[in-house]
Simulated scan of single mutants.
Amino acid sequence: MIWLLDLDNTLVSRDAAFAAWADSAVTADGGTAADLAAIVAADDGGFSPKADVARELIARLGWVDDVPAAIDRFRAGIREHVRAYDGVLADLDALRAAGDQVAVVTNGVSHQQRGKIAACGVEASVDAVVVSGEEGVEKPDPAIVEIALERLGASAVDRDQVWMVGDAGHADVAVGRAAGVRTGWVSHGRAWDDVHGAAPDVVGATTRDVLALATAGEHAAS
């Protein structure tokens, strides 16, 4: 079995890292609870344009009007606060010990995604890392799945033997569906939005739940 996993909010707590950093920045710069709420909302789980988040920080906290510097500042804050979810890397180790292959497939700029991977020790638990900013293609374009499979030496594998797991319906589930592989959605307690199409093959509140359900299903079918 091959497991392709998203990074942010799937293997590592990106949103919690941003919120923790934003809280410290608001406190340091004399902001209010309303400022914090507006900054977190502007981030939109990492999916807003980074320049928009930077402008919100500049407006709310009185930073120097330098968008690239503000982006660098909050990205550094995320890297400082990010953590792998408890137990998830051990689960990846167990999958690999059982003979499966595991790769990270993440959207984002190289230095930021690689920085989070390094900070959380993810690379030791996977066989490959594919970062959109290094490849010139990003989820939901299925070409990024093909790159990951090629990196694993598995381009010809039966797609029923491949899982794409992530928390974003419009990116992770969509790219898995477009690539013809099986899909696992990390809901974090949310309901599936039909705007993203048919429900994923497996849904779980956490990444560990998704992996456990998917693995149990594979064992039942074997």
Rank of each mutant, 00 (worst) to 15 (best):
V126H: 12
D158M: 01
S132V: 04
A143L: 08
A143T: 08
W163Y: 11
E146Y: 01
G121Y: 03
V122I: 15
V131R: 04
L149H: 00
G121F: 09
S132C: 11
I147N: 08
V165W: 13
I144G: 03
E138T: 00
V145W: 02
D160K: 01
E150V: 08
L149C: 09
V122L: 12
D158R: 04
A124C: 06
P140D: 10
R151Q: 13
W163T: 03
S125P: 12
E150Y: 03
V129H: 05
S125L: 10
G153T: 00
G133Y: 03
E150R: 15
V137C: 01
A156F: 08
W163M: 09
E135S: 02
G136R: 01
P140Y: 07
P140E: 12
E123M: 11
E134N: 10
G153N: 12
V137Y: 04
L152H: 00
E146R: 15
V137F: 07
V162P: 04
L152Q: 02
D158S: 06
W163P: 14
E134V: 06
V137N: 00
L149N: 00
V129M: 12
L149P: 12
S125C: 11
A124N: 03
V157G: 01
P142V: 08
V129F: 10
E138K: 05
D127E: 12
P142R: 07
V137D: 05
Q161L: 13
V137E: 02
G133E: 03
D141G: 00
V130H: 11
R151Y: 03
E138G: 02
W163D: 07
A148Y: 03
E150K: 13
A154F: 13
S125H: 15
V130D: 06
V162F: 06
A148G: 03
V122K: 15
V165K: 04
E138M: 07
V122S: 07
K139Y: 03
G133D: 00
V137I: 14
P142H: 10
S155K: 09
V137A: 06
E150H: 12
D158L: 02
G121Q: 11
E135H: 13
S132E: 05
V165A: 10
V126I: 14
I147K: 04
D127C: 05
V165D: 06
A148N: 02
A143D: 00
M164P: 00
Q161T: 01
E135W: 05
D141M: 06
K139A: 09
V126S: 13
G136N: 02
E134Y: 09
E123Y: 08
E146A: 12
I144M: 13
A143K: 05
S155N: 07
G153P: 11
D141I: 02
A128I: 08
G121H: 11
D127S: 02
V157L: 14
G133F: 06
V145S: 06
V165Q: 09
E146K: 08
V145T: 11
G136P: 05
A156R: 05
